[in-house]
Design a protein around this nucleic acid. Structure first.
Length: 578
RNA sequence: CGGGAUGUAGCGCAGUUUGGCCAGCGCGCUUGCCUUGGGAGCAAGAGGUCGGGGGUUCAAAUCCCUCCAUCCCGACCA
C-alpha cells in the first residue's frame, strides 16, 4: 500500500479555492476541490494519488472479506467478444448502455459492463463436476456503462471500479449458503469502511432472479428511497420500489348501492373530484393509462395512493412501460385524461391494486368528459385482469412483517447481491455432472460493490462545510503534521521529528512542509479531511507540547512531544472503533 | 432521447443585448520584499485558436448557419 509518509510539497493534490461550476453534489464538489479527482470526459475521471489511496483501502477491505468467505480473486478482460453476449441474448437486450466497438477486422466487441458471460463461459469450459463446487470467484476492475446521462461525479459515471463476485453452486440450497456468505461479507465491508448503511430488500430488475438485497449508504443526496421498520428487532428494510404494502381490510362494510353517472365538470384530478363531491380521496379509484410493448393497460390504485411503476412492470411482465400519451387515453377511454375508469373499459388490460378491491361504493372516472361514476363496486361493476400490489408505500404505513410503523430515508446504493439461478448457465450451456452422472446447469449468484461509488458515498455521508471527514479506515492518510511557520527552525525540526516518528511507527502521515501561511495549510487540511492534524506552533512548543486536532470530533488536545506517536495511535484506534 | 442552459487564461466570472481602441476582473501561478495560529500585504510578471468550422461585414467574443463539448430537469439505470 504505497509509502506511508509523504511531503505535501511533493504531493499531487491540486486543491481549489473556488467551486468548479460543473459540480452539483457534495461528493463531486469536495473530491474536485480537495484534489482527489479530475474529469477526463463526462462520467470519466482520473483518480489522483489521494483518491487512489482511498480506493485501494476500500479494495483491500473488500478483498479481505471476500477471501474470508472463500472467494478467489481473478482478473477478467474488459474487452469482451460480442459472441458471448449473443449467446446470453444480452447483445440485443442490453441496449445503448453497452459500449460497443469493432476491431480492425470488423468484429464486434463491447466494454464489459458486467462479467456474467465471461465467467460463465470460463466455468463452462473448466468445471465439470459437482465435486469442484461451490466456487466463489471475484474481480475488482473497471467496468463500463454508456449512461444516457452520467451525473453526480463518481456516483454515476460511465467508467467505474467495481467488485463483482460470482458464485457457482450445484443447487438452490448451495446458492442460499453462498448468498448468506456474501450478505455477511457485505455487512462487514461497509461496517469496516466506517459507513452508516442498511441492507434493503430490492427489486431484481432486468437481471432477474429471486432474492436480492441492496446495500444503501444513508445520505440525504441518495437517489434511492428506502423504507425501514421502526422496530429494530424486526429489521425490515426495503427499497421503495420493492417495499410491500400491507393489504388493507375493507374500508366499510356498506351495502352496495346502485352505480350512477354524475356530472363533474372540469374535475380532472383526485383532489378536484374529492372537493367537488365532498368525499375523501380514499373513496376513489385512481386510474392511470399505460402503454407497454404489447398492450394498453389501465392501472388502478386508491385515490390517495400512488402507482409504483416497478411493481406494475413486474405484475405485467413487460419490457417497456410508459404513461400513455393524450391520444391513446382519448382513443381507449373516449375521454381526455382525468376521466378514465375501469367500468366498461374495452380493449385494455385492467390491473387493480389489492387495496382497490376492498373499496365499496367508490368513485371513478366514467370514461366520458366531465363525468364520474359513483357507487362503483369492484367485482360487481368491473373485473380486473390482474390484482396485485402495485402501489407505492409511504412512511408511516405499517411494516409488512411486524406491523409497526415504517420510516423513510434516502440512500446511495453501493452494493447489490443477487440470486441468479440458472439463467446464465442455461443460456450459455454451462453444466456439471452430479452424483448420478446427470448434466445440470450451475446455480449462480452475483454480488457487486461499486468501489468508486463507495468512495463518493463516504464523502456524501462524512463532510461538513469545510471539507471531507474521512472515516479512519479509508482515509488517504491518517495524520497531517503542520508546522505553523516554516521560518521557525524549532517548529520545523520538531515537526520533522514527529513526522519521522509517526512514519517509523507505522502511521500513514503527511507533513505540510510548504512555505505557506498557517491559514492556508489549515484550510487544505480540513478540505482534504485527514482524521488527525498535529499542529506544531511556537506557543505549544515553548511548553514542549503540540496540538492534536481530531477532524471527526472537532476536538483539540495538547500533547507532550514525547507522547505524540502513542497519542495519535490511541486516538486512531478510538476513532476506528467508532 | 425530450426539455433547459452554458462554453472567454488552471479555477470562478464580466464583456455578447446595440459589431469598432490593445479582450478584462478576482483567485491561483512565477519573481522579489514582507508576513506566519485559519485561504495576508506591496511590487513586477507569465498565461487566451473568446469551444471548432463556415458565413455576413471595411471590421466579429459579439450577428447568421453548422458541428462539438459540458451541466441541470425528466425519462432511463445488472
Amino acid at each position: 500500500m504505497g509509502g506511508i509518509g509523504m511531503r505535501v510539497s511533493n504531493l499531487l493534490m491540486p486543491t481549489l479555492r473556488e467551486l468548479p461550476a460543473e459540480a452539483e453534489v457534495v461528493s463531486h464538489q469536495l473530491l474536485l476541490r480537495a484534489g482527489f479527482i479530475r474529469k477526463a470526459a463526462a462520467g470519466v475521471y482520473t483518480l489522483l494519488p489521494l483518491a487512489w489511496r482511498v480506493i485501494r483501502k476500500i479494495e483491500q477491505i473488500i478483498r479481505e472479506e471476500m477471501d474470508r468467505q472463500g472467494g478467489q480473486e481473478l482478473m477478467m478482460p474488459i474487452i469482451q467478444p460480442a459472441e458471448l453476449w449473443h449467446e446470453s441474448g444480452r447483445w440485443d437486450v442490453y441496449g445503448p448502455e453497452l459500449f460497443r466497438l469493432k476491431d480492425r477486422h470488423g468484429r464486434d466487441f463491447c466494454l464489459g459492463p458486467t462479467h456474467e458471460e465471461i465467467i460463465t463461459a470460463l466455468i463452462r469450459g473448466e468445471i465439470n463436476s459437482y465435486k469442484q463446487l461451490p466456487l466463489l470467484l471475484y474481480q475488482i476492475q473497471n467496468k463500463y456503462r454508456d449512461e444516457r446521462r452520467p451525473r453526480f461525479g463518481l456516483l454515476r459515471g460511465r467508467e467505474f471500479i467495481m467488485k463483482d463476485l460470482y458464485s457457482f453452486d450445484r443447487d438452490e440450497a448451495g446458492l442460499d449458503i453462498s448468498y448468506n456468505k456474501m450478505f455477511e461479507a457485505y455487512t462487514n465491508v461497509f461496517r469496516r469502511c466506517g459507513l452508516r448503511f442498511r441492507p434493503v430488500v430490492a427489486d431484481s430488475g432486468a437481471i432477474g432472479g429471486s432474492d436480492t438485497h441492496e446495500f444503501a449508504v444513508l445520505a440525504e443526496s441518495g437517489e434511492a428511497t428506502i423504507l425501514y421498520c421502526e422496530n429494530d428487532e424486526c429489521g425490515y428494510a426495503a427499497n421503495e420500489e420493492r417495499a410491500e404494502a400491507v393489504a388493507s381490510t375493507s374500508t366499510g362494510n356498506m351495502a352496495p348501492l346502485e352505480m350512477k353517472k354524475i356530472s363533474t365538470p372540469d374535475c380532472r384530478t383526485i383532489e378536484e373530484v374529492a372537493l367537488f363531491l365532498k368525499l375523501p380521496p380514499e373513496k376513489m379509484i385512481k386510474t392511470m393509462i399505460y402503454s407497454t410493448e404489447k398492450e394498453t393497460v389501465a392501472a388502478m390504485v386508491r385515490g390517495d395512493r400512488e402507482i409504483n411503476e416497478v411493481k406494475l412492470y413486474n405484475a405485467l411482465g413487460c419490457i417497456r412501460l410508459d404513461l400513455a400519451d393524450e391520444e391513446t387515453v382519448l382513443r381507449v377511454t373516449g375521454a381526455p385524461a382525468g376521466f378514465a375508469g375501469p367500468v366498461n373499459l374495452k380493449g385494455v388490460k385492467l390491473v387493480a391494486d389489492r387495496e382497490v378491491m376492498t373499496l365499496a361504493n367508490a368513485v371513478c372516472g366514467a370514461n366520458e368528459n366531465d363525468y364520474h361514476l359513483v357507487n362503483v363496486n369492484p367485482g360487481r361493476d368491473f373485473k380486473p385482469d390482474i390484482i396485485a400490489d402495485i402501489r407505492l408505500v409511504k412512511a408511516g404505513e405499517p411494516c409488512p412483517v411486524c406491523g409497526a410503523g415504517l420510516h423513510e430515508a434516502k440512500g446511495i446504493e453501493v452494493g447489490q447481491i443477487f440470486k441468479l439461478g440458472d439463467k446464465y448457465s442455461k443460456a450459455l450451456g454451462a453444466t456439471f455432472l452430479d452424483e448420478n452422472g446427470k448434466a445440470r446447469p450451475f446455480i449462480m449468484g452475483c454480488y457487486g460493490i461499486g468501489v468508486t461509488r463507495t468512495m463518493a458515498a463516504a464523502v456524501e455521508q462524512n463532510h461538513d462545510e469545510r471539507g471531507i471527514k474521512w472515516p479512519v479506515q479509508i482515509a488517504p492518510y491518517h495524520v497531517i503534521v503542520v508546522p505553523v511557520s516554516t521560518k521557525d527552525k524549532d517548529q520545523v525540526n520538531a515537526a520533522e521529528e514527529i513526522y519521522q516518528n509517526l512514519v517509523t511507527g507505522g502511521v500513514e502521515t503527511v507533513i505540510d512542509d510548504r512555505p505557506e501561511r498557517a491559514g492556508v495549510k489549515f484550510k487544505d487540511a480540513d478540505l482534504v479531511g485527514y482524521p488527525i492534524r498535529i499542529t506544531v506552533g511556537a506557543k505549544g512548543l515553548a511548553e514542549g507540547k503540540v496540538e492534536l486536532y481530531s477532524r471527526l470530533e472537532e476536538q483539540t488536545m495538547m500533547v507532550p512531544l514525547g507522547d505524540v506517536v502513542n497519542a495519535v495511535k490511541s486516538k486512531l484506534r478510538e476513532l476506528a472503533a467508532g
